[in-house]
Design a binder for these strands. Structure first.
Lengths: 186, 186
DNA sequence: ACCCCGTGATACATTTTTGTCTCACAAGAT
DNA sequence: ATCTTGTGAGACAAAAATGTATCACGGGGT
C-alpha cells in the first residue's frame, strides 16, 4: 500500500517540521518511500516545500472558514468557535506550523502573499472576538493570533517529547490561552 | 572595530534563529565578518552551533539562578521572580530560543544532557510556583514551562515582523501567561 | 619606521546534497 | 498469461556547502 499524495505530504511535513534542513533522502525515508518517488511527485526541494506551504494554507483556511462568525453574531457564539478553531489547529500546526516562518517559503512571492492574506483573515477573526467582548481589547489582535500559534507549537513539541498526550493538547492550550497559568485568587 | 566573540556569537545566533539552515557565508555576512574569520573562531559548523547552544544554556541558567526562590519563600515572592525571569528571557529567546529544538545540537550527548538538566531545573521553579499557590496546580509543570517558551518565541517573531515593539513584549507575554487573553467577565 | 597580528579576499579540494537517468521488479488490470 | 504502471535501487553528473590554505593589506604597538 503506497501512501497517497496528501499522506506523503503529511509525513514529509512532519519530518521537516522537526528538522527543516533535513536532506531529501532523509525525508523520503521518514515518509516510507524512496527518494526517487519523492522526486517524481515534487521534482525539486523547492516544489516540495511549496506544496507543504500550500497545504498549510489550505488547511488553516478551511479552519478559519469554519470558525468565522457573521457580523451580527451573539457574543456567546464566539467561544465555541474559538474552541473548534483551536481543536482543528492543533494537529495542523504539528505538521505545518513551521511553514509561515520558513524563509525559503516566504521567498516565494505568491506563497508569501497567501500567508499575509491568511494572517489578515485570522486577525479579523480575533478582532471580532474583541468587539464581541470575549477577548481582551487591550492586546493587539496580532498578539491574540500569534500567542495562540506559539502555544500550539509548544504543545506540539511537548507531544513529540512525550511530555503530554495528544489528547491533553486541547485542554492545555485552551486553558492557558483563555485564562492563563496563574491561580485565580489574585 | 571588530566584534567580540560574544557579539559575534549573538549576531550569528540571531541570523540562525530565523534561518537554521543558512550557509556559513550568509551567517558571516550577517555578523559583519568574513567567512574566514568565522571559521577561525569556530572551525566547523558543528563547533559554531555548539557554541551557540552552550551560550544559550549559560544565559538561561543565569536567569534561572536569579529567579529561584528558597524553599521557605513567601508566596508573594514568586510573582516578581517570575516577572524578572520573563524579562530576562525575552531577549535571550530572541537569539537562542531555537537551540533546544535543533536536532543537530541535541545530537551532541553532552549538550543534550545539559538541555535536559536545565529543563528539570526550570520545572522545579514552576513546580515551586504551584506549591506556593501562584500557578495552577492542574496543569503539568512541563506545560507551565513550555507555554512560556512558546509565548516568548511568538513575541520574538512578532517583533521581527514589526508587529510589536520590543518594549511591548513583557506586557504581552506576562498578561497572556498569567491571566490569558479572555476578558475577565466570564 | 618597523614589525606583528588578525583580517578580508581568493583559490582550491572535499564532502554533501540535489537532480537526472536507467533498469529490474512487483502488483493490479485486462 | 500478458501488459501496464509505478516503485525501489543504484549509478551518475551538477550544484552547493564546507573545510583548508595562501597572500596582500592595514591598524596598533614597539
Amino acid at each position: 500500500m503506497l501512501p497517497s499524495d496528501s499522506a506523503l505530504l503529511d509525513a514529509a511535513a512532519q519530518h521537516l517540521s522537526r528538522n527543516r534542513s533535513a536532506a531529501l533522502g532523509e525525508v523520503a525515508r521518514a515518509a516510507g518511500v524512496s527518494r526517487a518517488t519523492l522526486h517524481r511527485r515534487w521534482p525539486t526541494r523547492e516544489a516540495l516545500l511549496r506544496a507543504v506551504g500550500e497545504r498549510s494554507i489550505a488547511v488553516v483556511d478551511e479552519l478559519l472558514a469554519e470558525a468565522e462568525l457573521p457580523a451580527d453574531a451573539a457574543p456567546e457564539a464566539f467561544d465555541p468557535a474559538l474552541d473548534r478553531f483551536i481543536d482543528g489547529l492543533a494537529p495542523a500546526i504539528h505538521l505545518y506550523g513551521f511553514t509561515c516562518y520558513e524563509p525559503q517559503l516566504l521567498a516565494d512571492p505568491e506563497l508569501s502573499a497567501d500567508v499575509r492574506a491568511q494572517d489578515e483573515r485570522a486577525l479579523r477573526f480575533f478582532a471580532h472576538g474583541q468587539r464581541l467582548g470575549r477577548l481582551r481589547p487591550d492586546l493587539p489582535a496580532a498578539w491574540l493570533w500569534h500567542s495562540l500559534w506559539g502555544l500550539l507549537e509548544s504543545a506540539a513539541y511537548g507531544v513529540d517529547e512525550g511530555q503530554f498526550g495528544r489528547r491533553e493538547v486541547r485542554r492545555l492550550v485552551t486553558t492557558t490561552y483563555r485564562t492563563g497559568n496563574q491561580t485565580e485568587s489574585h
